[in-house]
Each structure stands twice: as structure tokens, then as C-alpha cells.
């Protein structure tokens, strides 16, 4: 029986008389689990250190403005481009799936609004940001680690985590503005695809947009975007700051950071949806 146990498999064995369920971790599962727990611990310690011993305000102010330019303003182009086409695709796909003549055509506008506001603008955009901004954060901090620039900061007596990560966290608090723009552009894309593609009239689409509108859905979306912003700023920073090795490892750390940022966003998306809408 034990020969069938594969690595990384958690088996719950029922010995037959239902007395005790024995949980068996295979030899490699325990270190892997410990590794995850250790990483979560290191991440928590990093967050605590970020808020300790702040850098002088005039320097911090210029760092924050620089990060807003890099992380927020620099991402606007790709976010506008993707949101526009996603909105358009949602409108077209909704229209193509309405075959019953009894279903009103304003459903196209309604479905576009709900999809874009609830999921595409906050979550899909965050995954894009995890790729674009996250890999930038990991590679820039990772390169500083490899070239001993972080050691140089520490030797000077600078709290390198505060200097490097804090401005990114503050800059990412402007992320809800990006999400708001993504909502607007996504719905605009849906309207253009719906109306100019001949799937809906402008009046039907706008009527759908206004139908059963719940303002809390926008609030829910902004709450999610603030949480995701924190994740996008800190998880890639963690992978960059604690990386070891050379240039090749910087690339690997960027990929790992993207994967973990996406995983954390998806899990938090589920939890926040359950908490706020469930």
C-alpha cells in the first residue's frame, strides 16, 4: 500500500475500524511545508521592518513621486489597452450567447458592467500589474542585492527595506485610480463593440448599464484593489530583497514573484468576495 504513496501527497488513511485517521506526510512534504511557513514568517518580518526607522521625509517624498511615475503612470498605457479590448470581448460574447428573443438586449450592457466592475477591472488588471510592475520590482531590487547596493545602504545605516519598499507601497495606494480608469475604459470598449458591431443599440446598452446598479459593487472593487495593490508592492519586493545568486537568479526570482503574486491575488479575491458579497 505504501508503495503507492507519491511525493508531495498527503494521505488520510482509514485503517478500517474508523478509530483514527492517520495523516502521513511523505519525506519531502514536510520540508516543503516548512519552507512555505518559513517564507510567510520572513515576509511578515519584512513587512514589520518596512515601517521601522523611516527615511528622511524630503528624500522619501521624491522616492514616492518617482515610484508613482514608474508603477502607476507607467502602467496606464497597457491597462487602458487591455481594458478596452476585454470590455469589447465581454460585450460581443454576451451578445452572441443571447439566442432567446425573450431576453432583453440591455443584458449586453448589464453583463459588461457587472463583469468589468466586479472582476475584470480589479482582478484581471491586478494579474497584469503583477506581471508588469511585479517583475520590475523584483528585478530592480534583486539587481541591487546582486550588485551589493543593498549592503551599501545597510552599511551606511539606512533601513534598506524602508528606503526601497515603503515608497512602492505608498505609490501603489494610487492603484484604485488605475482600476477606476480600467472600469471606465472597459465599459467604453463594451459600448463601442456592442453598438458599432451591430449587437445592441446605444440606448439598450446604456439602459443595461443603469439597470439594478448597486454602488457597493464599485466599493467592493476598490477594496479589492487596495488589498491587491499591497500584495503587488510587497510580494515581488520580498522575492527581490531576499534573493541569492547572480543575474540568472534575478530572472528566476522575477518569474517566481509573478507566480506567487498571482496565486495570492486569486486566493485573496476568493476570500474578499466571500466576506464582502457572500
Amino acid at each position: 500500500m505504501f508503495s503507492k504513496i507519491t511525493n508531495y501527497t498527503l494521505l488520510i488513511l482509514n485503517p478500517g475500524y474508523n478509530k483514527v485517521n492517520i495523516v502521513i506526510f511523505t519525506a519531502r512534504s514536510v520540508p516543503l511545508l516548512m519552507n512555505y511557513v518559513s517564507s510567510i514568517g520572513s515576509y511578515s518580518i519584512m513587512i514589520r521592518e518596512v515601517f521601522k526607522k523611516p527615511t528622511k521625509w524630503p528624500i522619501m517624498k521624491s522616492l514616492i513621486l518617482k515610484e508613482i511615475d514608474e508603477l502607476i503612470y507607467g502602467s496606464m498605457g497597457i491597462i487602458i489597452f487591455i481594458s478596452f479590448f476585454i470590455g469589447g470581448v465581454v460585450a460581443i460574447q454576451t451578445a452572441l450567447n443571447i439566442s432567446n428573443p425573450l431576453i432583453p438586449r440591455n443584458l449586453i450592457g448589464f453583463a459588461t458592467r457587472q463583469s468589468v466592475i466586479l472582476e475584470f477591472a480589479p482582478t484581471f488588471t491586478s494579474i497584469i500589474m503583477a506581471g508588469k510592475v511585479g517583475s520590475y520590482i523584483t528585478s530592480s531590487i534583486g539587481t541591487m542585492r546582486v550588485t551589493e547596493q543593498i549592503d551599501a545602504l545597510e552599511v551606511m545605516g539606512v533601513n534598506s527595506l524602508n528606503y526601497l519598499v515603503f515608497p512602492k507601497i505608498i505609490a501603489m495606494f494610487f492603484y484604485p485610480f488605475v482600476v477606476a480608469i480600467a472600469m471606465y475604459i472597459g465599459i467604453l470598449g463594451g459600448w463601442i463593440a456592442g453598438v458599432f458591431g451591430g449587437f445592441s443599440s446605444s440606448a439598450d446598452f446604456v439602459e443595461g448599464l443603469q439597470l439594478d446598479f448597486t454602488p457597493f459593487h464599485v466599493t467592493y472593487s476598490f477594496i479589492k484593489s487596495v488589498v491587491f495593490a499591497f500584495v503587488i508592492a510587497t510580494v515581488p519586493s520580498y522575492h527581490g530583497y531576499y534573493m541569492k545568486g547572480g543575474a540568472l537568479e534575478v530572472g528566476k526570482a522575477s518569474t517566481t514573484a509573478f507566480v506567487w503574486t498571482s496565486v495570492v491575488i486569486i486566493i485573496l479575491n476568493y476570500i474578499l468576495t466571500q466576506l464582502l458579497l457572500g
Binding site: K53, T143, T147, E148, Q149, D151, A152, V155, M156, G157
Partner: peptide
């Protein structure tokens, strides 16, 4: 310790200048 570190100067192998 932080004050002491400000009394130290370090020249790193790769110079470690801020790019």
C-alpha cells in the same frame, strides 16, 4: 549601532554605486 555605522565607510568589490 546606527550611529556607529555612520562612522564607517565601505568600498565594495563591485563598487556598489547606485545605478
Amino acid at each position: 549601532r546606527r550611529d556607529l555605522r555612520q562612522e564607517m565607510g565601505m568600498v565594495f568589490q563591485g563598487s556598489a554605486l547606485f545605478d
